[in-house]
Simulated assay, not measured.
Amino acid sequence: MSPPLGKWATRLPTPGEYHGTVYEDTGTVLVFDPPVRLQTTHFSPSSGLPDIPENHHTVEYFLDPTPAGTTVTITQGNNSSDDEVASSTATWQLVLGNLKEFLESAPGKNTLLGGNQGG
């Protein structure tokens, strides 16, 4: 059974901490097409901007099976500046690097598309 659309599948808001500052991000699921695509909105008050739709990002996650495994692609739209693009790119590269490291730490146990889901 698929999680309901309209809110994050786990919880809303999503708490976090960045450079010692606690925050709660929010978002809405726009497209949920497992196991290939997820598109959400995302707003973080750590941006310092007001919580209005014009300040929300759109984030898309794509999973593409390949002979060598799975390619994960993340795109983020509605960035306000080149500096924000650079900062977001660095953040997503870190996230993807951590995901790759985690998945490669236990081959066959952590798969993104099908197979054994942690057993």
Results as ranks from 00 to 15, higher is better:
E104P: 03
S88F: 00
N98V: 12
V22M: 14
G20F: 03
F62A: 08
T91A: 15
D25E: 10
E17D: 09
R37Y: 01
K100L: 10
K7N: 14
Q76I: 07
G48W: 06
D83H: 08
T10K: 12
G27I: 06
D33C: 06
T91G: 15
D83I: 07
T73G: 01
A86D: 08
G69T: 03
G27N: 05
E104H: 04
P53Y: 08
D83K: 11
P3I: 08
I74N: 00
T21R: 15
V95D: 01
G119Y: 12
S46G: 11
S105H: 03
D82H: 02
V95N: 02
L103S: 04
T41E: 02
T111I: 05
D83P: 09
A106M: 07
P4F: 00
L103G: 08
G118E: 06
L30H: 02
D83F: 03
L38K: 07
W8F: 10
Q76Y: 03
G6D: 02
S87N: 10
P34V: 03
E54R: 12
F43D: 00
L49Y: 09
L113Y: 07
L113P: 03
S80T: 14
A86F: 00
F62V: 14
T91C: 12
T71Q: 14
T75Q: 07
L63R: 00
S80V: 13
Q117A: 15
G114H: 00
N98A: 10
P4D: 06
G115Q: 02
G119I: 09
D64H: 13
T111S: 11
L49V: 11
S80I: 12
L63P: 00
T66E: 06
V72L: 10
Y61Q: 06
L96E: 04
K7H: 14
S81R: 04
V85L: 09
G48E: 09
E84V: 12
I74P: 02
Y61H: 08
S87W: 01
N55T: 09
P107N: 03
Q76T: 09
L12S: 15
N55R: 11
T21H: 13
D82F: 04
L5E: 13
A9M: 08
P13C: 05
L113K: 10
T111Q: 12
G48N: 05
I52W: 07
N98W: 07
L63W: 02
F43N: 00
H56K: 14
P107Y: 05
P65I: 11
D83Q: 10
G97Q: 04
F32E: 00
L49Q: 14
F102R: 13
P45E: 06
L96I: 05
D64C: 13
Q117G: 14
T10Q: 13
R11T: 15
F62D: 13
E60K: 02
S47H: 06
I52V: 15
N79L: 15
V29W: 00
N78Q: 14
R11S: 15
P35N: 05
V72N: 03
T40G: 05
A86R: 13
N110Q: 12
E17Y: 05
G16T: 05
G20Y: 00
S2R: 15
V72K: 01
L30F: 01
V85N: 07
G48T: 03
L103P: 02
Q39F: 02
P13H: 02
P53H: 10
